[in-house]
Nucleic acid binder design. Structure first.
Lengths: 173, 173
DNA sequence: GTAATTACCTTGACCTGTCAACGACTAACA
DNA sequence: TGTTAGTCGTTGACAGGTCAAGGTAATTAC
């Protein structure tokens, strides 16, 4: 290619904006970049979920995830939420604050360790969650509809493998 | 701080007696939630890439992606970047601005359509990209190391399937 | 010609995610 | 006690992503 791209004065000449066909890396269709694909997919899935939650009178996606964790009894304190979901503790702190303001959570000081606040869902939260669970379950079924049982298991196996190589790289050069 | 409000004083020992997990989503190991897994994976991969770029004197990840698209001649204008990568046009506008400020891009008005700015990488950008490409290529090989050729193809097939169900859901109800 | 519409890009507002510093508290130990 | 270290949570600062309105240029319709 060597076409040094410092030319000024673009003349056009290529009719209809036809991409000046360079031979650069045709091999690199953008869709072949794994991390790009994952990034785009995740953005779309986030938008899909946030849209569903909004249309059904729910809360923002990150709040929903925190509520679900509490609902499933996977955590009862902020630290446990951070541990189980690997969320940022600062983010969790602010989300919990807003959920309390919104009437979805109450916190109680914990006698055994006064640094800790035990978190409890309110009745309003239970109602909202029970209302949304069928919606989200339908979505989940929609997401897995293109997969057979076996494929779906394979997908999670692949995710496990990707997790194993997604940590910081010690590259030292 | 005036923070104490409802002091209820939990006695330790699971106080709840509530949370009757009726309707729960199931045996909920969090790791079985597809969208959660993807979200976490993507966050880790982002951090991994951003860390590599930082350590090797590069630019932020989103900037890197824009530069790569231009480097690969997959786009020559902002609109083409938006189309090919499905980035937000506002985000691209600001990234391009900063890349120009940083000396990595120059833009030229386009004679045939003065709304359009053709974008060109500077020599500094070429140097930076050529320096980082081996690093990023090693990373990519690292990421695919847990996969055979066939597995990797299957993974992309799965990603295609997920793309097909990741659009907005028309759910009425 | 002028007006309406469309296209490319910019800008502002807002939300989320990430990082680091900090305060409050507990624990360990002299 | 007093010191030190570790843990839970809060806060500030800031980059990144998303959404919508606006500005200017080009296109189409009178």
């Amino acid at each position: 290619m060597t076409d040094n791209q410092h030319e000024i004065n673009v003349e056009d000449g290529s009719p209809d904006g036809a991409q000046s066909g360079t031979d650069s890396l045709q091999a690199t269709d953008f869709s072949t970049f794994l991390t790009f694909r994952l990034s785009r997919l995740q953005a779309n899935l986030n938008a899909q979920a946030a849209d569903l939650l909004r249309r059904h009178g729910g809360v923002p996606l990150a709040h929903w995830r925190v509520l679900l964790i509490l609902f499933e009894n996977m955590a009862t304190t902020q630290k446990e939420i951070v541990d189980v979901a690997e969320f940022d503790k600062g983010q969790v702190s602010r989300i919990v604050e807003r959920l309390i303001d919104g009437g979805y959570l109450v916190s109680e000081s914990y006698n055994a360790d006064r640094r800790v606040r035990k978190l409890f869902l309110t009745e309003a939260a239970h109602q909202m969650i029970n209302r949304l669970i069928p919606v989200m379950r339908r979505r989940h079924q929609h997401l897995r509809s293109p997969f057979s049982e076996e494929d779906f298991a394979t997908l999670f196996d692949f995710l496990d493998r990707l997790d194993s190589v997604s940590t910081k790289i010690e590259d030292e050069t």
